[in-house]
Design a protein around this nucleic acid. Structure first.
Lengths: 217, 217
DNA sequence: GTATTTGTGGATACGCCGTACGGTAGTGAG
DNA sequence: CTCACTACCGTACGGCGTATCCACAAATAC
């Protein structure tokens, strides 16, 4: 097996998909590729660079769906592809936004996003554009991060109703019965069954409407 | 020095403020407190629990400003306090959204946020409320995360104009001169001088207007 | 042909990490 | 006095990222 940045990144992605970033180490990647750990340093400077490389591989997939005739369709496609990518590779959500993403595919997605936003009615100059890009990306980073966290929590505590009760745990039950958090209690008891994709889409639409100056459609 | 969860958390916060989460270890905390590392386990189950504790200490500060007569003023105060906290403790931005935050102070901030949002015109039922809470928190998590990342990048590359050019680095300069990323190039060259706080406030207002159904003021 | 240089790769080591485990000393109760 | 409990430390384990050195094979020079 010839070693390359691509094969290293692919092995790293397989391992991270299986065990999260905590389960990812250079030794494990090297073992999966049948080489010694120090071999990897011929191709990546350090672990941090490898993580950046993995992120850019995921951005390549997002970039594939980033071209649409309408600017709004482009933005929706990018946003949904970002969420899909994060759900397929949860480690991506852990890394997203935590470092500048400057790989070629990340730049391509950034370009597609910015170009689409520059066509929106409320984006009149470069300052408007920078704010709009910032707001959309802030929402995306936060939304996928929180959704992945929620999935992990659900996975570790179960998803059916009995497990849902057990999920509250003695601590949280106790806290919620103090009466100090009535709205949160209502949300937890009554609000736990919204469809995640619909929620994402609804909130994305709301945010988009606001930053682009185009009403809800 | 009597040991307690509070003293451990305070020492941990000092260390994390100084060296980030990478500079934080149980051995270092123990050394700072003049005890053996295993002592800490009398007070916290593991490192993860300690990180949760640190987050809740920061939420205590946010909770202090979370009570206002008007629901919108409450939301603005919470949002700005969250940003201020993240800028004062950058490690907070690294942790925010990455785990469920269930400490008493985090619950208090969550309650204040949800209670305020429940009074907004567009929030008519529990599902609306859940979506609104999700959207606002997504924006906050993403915005502070990205802003702290930007600060770190700036800090490591300098902030004056000469350093700004050097900041692009050979790689990024090369990428931007390919002509493949014209909008991004424009943003980088022309758009780099917006005030961070004003940007945050502008985008927060935009997002709030959208999710609460109350126009810009 | 031999000697030297270069390239590839692995082995070993270092300093650090979180945490398991065992032992010791001191204190209080019976 | 003995015993049980508590507080505490030391040692150790398995793992991490990465520095460094060495061995061997292939290529090059003479």
């Amino acid at each position: 097996m010839p070693l390359s940045r691509d094969t290293i990144a692919a092995a790293a992605i397989r391992l991270a998909d299986a065990g999260g970033l905590d389960g990812l180490s250079l030794r494990k990647i090297a073992k999966e590729l049948g080489v010694g750990p120090m071999r990897l340093y011929d191709y990546v400077t350090n672990k941090s660079e490898l993580l950046d490389l993995m992120v850019d591989v995921v951005y390549a997939r997002i970039a594939e769906v980033a071209q649409h005739a309408q600017w709004r369709a482009t933005l929706l496609a990018i946003a949904h592809a970002t969420r899909d990518a994060a759900l397929a590779h949860e480690w991506f959500a852990d890394l997203l936004g935590g470092r500048p993403h400057l790989g070629p595919h990340a730049l391509a997605v950034g370009e597609a996003t910015a170009a689409a936003l520059s066509k929106a009615p409320a984006v009149r100059d470069i300052d408007d554009l920078q704010r709009a890009v910032g707001a959309l990306n802030a929402f995306l980073v936060g939304a996928v991060r929180r959704e992945v966290t929620e999935r992990r929590t659900t996975r570790s505590t179960g998803t059916d109703l009995a497990a849902f009760q057990a999920r509250l745990g003695p601590y949280l039950t106790r806290m919620l019965t103090t009466g100090r958090y009535p709205t949160v209690a209502r949300l937890v008891i009554d609000g736990a069954h919204l469809n995640a994709e619909e929620t994402f889409h609804h909130n994305l639409t709301t945010v988009l409407d606001g930053i682009t100056g185009e009403p809800r459609r």
